[in-house]
């Protein structure tokens, strides 16, 4: 092939350009630690990386929800735990009230007063708030659920709605325990027992004891059920964290530069560029025939 001067010059410039582009590309990959900057550099990995990022964000959202639910359920559990203690105390009090050695005065005065104290504590626990919301009033979060009316009877201001929260793609949990079904019977039974004590109605008191024990069992069952749901939430948080780790490492493998590899390639490309420049400068500045002709 006949080689002209312009051919060698163009050829050289073009090769320098190509080599510089490759060096630039790798430098960029190392500096940004990403193996691609725009989707078109690697469409399939880019699509996968967008999906993974989205999955991570969504998972984070579920974890936020789950941790809110978790805190709410811990608050619920701790209140119910204390309610159980109160219920136990009340039962013991009623049992000693039924004891033959107990005097009528004792029943109608000190014991009734003690039970009234327990009732007030139970009402306070039923009105527990978490982050400004009443946790036992169904979905009427702003309304205090439990109060005593002028006749000393228990009123419930909440509703019996459940609050269902999504803590995973397809996992929903009921996070609240409705006060009217779980707590009202207990407090009502306590009030009933207190009234029987006041009236010194021993027969009535033994019926009250049964109601009280049933209410206690029912509360316990509800607490166990709520605890089981709370464990489900905790497990699901742990599982999501686990999945996140996998997703993150997948994301890294899709879009992160393998630095060691890139460094080696960069070195090789730099050497290539250097050689092109070296050889090129010699070829371009090489003397041509004009320099040798004797004039």
């Amino acid at each position: 092939m006949r080689i002209t001067n312009m051919m060698s010059a163009n050829n050289l410039v073009q090769h320098i350009q190509e080599n510089q582009e490759q060096v630039y590309k790798i430098q960029e990959q190392i500096a940004s630690e990403k193996s691609f900057e725009t989707p078109s550099e690697d469409p399939l990995n880019a699509s996968a990386s967008m999906k993974l990022k989205s999955a991570l964000l969504i998972s984070q959202g579920y974890q936020n929800t789950a941790s809110t639910v978790n805190e709410w359920m811990s608050a619920t559990d701790s209140s119910m735990d204390q309610l159980e203690t109160l219920a136990n105390n009340a039962i013991n009090l009623v049992l000693s009230g039924l004891d033959d050695g107990t005097s009528s005065t004792e029943r109608s005065t000190s014991m009734a007063t003690e039970l009234t104290e327990i009732i007030n504590q139970a009402i306070d626990l039923g009105n527990t708030k978490y982050k400004d919301s009443y946790i036992f009033s169904g979905t009427n979060l702003n309304d205090q659920p439990f109060a005593l009316d002028e006749n000393g009877a228990l009123t419930y201001n909440g509703n019996s709605s459940t609050m269902v929260r999504g803590v995973g793609q397809s996992s929903n949990v009921v996070m609240n325990v409705a006060g009217d079904s779980s707590i009202s019977p207990l407090i009502k039974a306590m009030i009933d027992a207190r009234d029987k004590l006041k009236l010194d109605d021993v027969d009535g008191l033994s019926v009250s004891l049964e109601t009280l024990q049933n209410a206690f069992t029912s509360l316990s069952n509800d607490r166990t059920a709520s605890g089981a749901r709370a464990r489900q939430v905790t497990n699901s948080i742990a599982a999501m964290k686990e999945t996140d780790t996998t997703l993150n490492s997948l994301l890294n493998s899709k879009e992160n530069t393998d630095l060691a590899d890139a460094a080696v390639v960069l070195k090789a490309k730099q050497t290539a560029l250097q050689s092109v420049l070296d050889v090129g400068s010699r070829a371009l500045s090489a003397l041509n025939l004009f320099d040798y002709l004797q004039q």
């Binding site: 990022k53 989205s54 964000l57 969504i58 984070q60 959202g61 579920y62 936020n64 929800t65 809110t68 639910v69 982050k131 400004d132 919301s133 979060l141 702003n142 929260r165 999504g166």
Partner: peptide, 18 residues
């Protein structure tokens, strides 16, 4: 990302509506 953040903000609100 904007779309995902939009969805997630609804989810957060659903968990804690008040």
């Amino acid at each position: 990302t904007a779309l995902d953040e939009f969805w997630t903000s609804w989810q957060d609100l659903a968990a804690d509506p008040t």
